[in-house]
């Protein structure tokens, strides 16, 4: 949709960035993926780095992320996004490289790749969407599923005795010297989106320092998987997900660089 920049004394103060394609997103109503895609591409747009940015899409709901983010992209095998991104960044060290991964992709099947990519301090940005459930395959238990939380594969609620504990992988990778900037954000309300955008901007800028991996977890919702309306899902997220996955910076560069 092309709209005039100025009309009748009014000017555009917010529009979809050109770095997002016009393809309508396939995500369920109210899903946080769309917001995170847009924020990433807004930063790419504002930094004017579309020609230097290469993204890696995961397997999961955001498997088609490359249909929406208007940059060169590669589609990785399940869990291998950071390995693919390592391959790209190592041969094109002056490009901005990011991965976009869900909790199943990054914290279950891709745990090895995640840990070692960060431990090598690859100069990439890892965007990790944590909604505690496998969305694409229909709402199965994820490594980040909360205790007691019902999913199609934990129908009586996740029990630690058999299914283990929610994996706080972001806290785990914070311990690694290769991690430069680690933060946990959300997109459930306008100010959270503003904060996420600042974090993404920093993470892209930090890539120029070549001092380590930037890791942004976005605690997000899954209205379909959680079987709630979008509003209910955001409220539930604030009440249940945030206590387990508190928002804020876990590691900022000054700590690393001194």
């Amino acid at each position: 949709m092309k709209l005039p920049p100025i009309t009748n004394g009014f000017e555009i103060v917010y529009k979809k960035p050109d770095t997002l394609t016009d393809t309508p997103m396939h995500y369920c109503p109210g899903c946080g993926h769309g917001v995170v895609h847009r924020v990433l591409m807004e930063v790419v747009d504002e930094m004017k780095i579309q020609d230097k940015t290469i993204g890696v899409a995961p397997v999961g709901c955001s498997v088609f992320a490359y249909n929406y983010m208007n940059v060169d992209m590669q589609e990785a095998a399940h869990g291998r996004a950071t390995a693919v991104a390592t391959g790209i960044k190592r041969v094109l060290p002056d490009r901005f490289v990011f991965t976009y991964q869900g909790d199943g992709d990054l914290a279950a099947i891709g745990t090895g790749e995640t840990v070692h990519t960060v431990n090598r301090g690859e100069n990439i940005l890892i965007v990790f969407i944590n909604n505690g459930v496998y969305g694409m395959t229909g709402g199965q238990m994820a490594p980040t599923t909360l205790l007691g939380m019902k999913t199609t594969t934990s129908p009586y609620g996740r029990e630690a005795a058999s299914a283990g504990f929610p994996l706080k992988i972001t806290n785990l990778i914070t311990q690694l010297p290769g991690a430069l900037y680690v933060t946990r954000q959300a997109v459930h309300e306008p100010n959270a989106v503003r904060r996420l955008k600042k974090a993404v901007r920093l993470a892209f800028e930090y890539q120029l320092l070549k001092k380590g991996t930037c890791f942004i977890e976005v605690v997000s919702n899954c209205p379909s998987g959680w079987k709630m309306t979008p509003q209910e899902s955001n409220k539930w997220m604030e009440e249940n997900m945030f206590p387990m996955y508190p928002l804020g910076d876990l590691k900022v560069p000054s700590q690393t660089m001194n």
Binding site: G9, V13, G34
Partner: peptide
Amino acid sequence: TGCVNCALVCPDAAITVYRQRKEV
């Protein structure tokens, strides 16, 4: 008021926001 909040949380980037120009 053109505060942009709606566009920020829109998962489908469906909202364009205009605001009155300051001089107007």
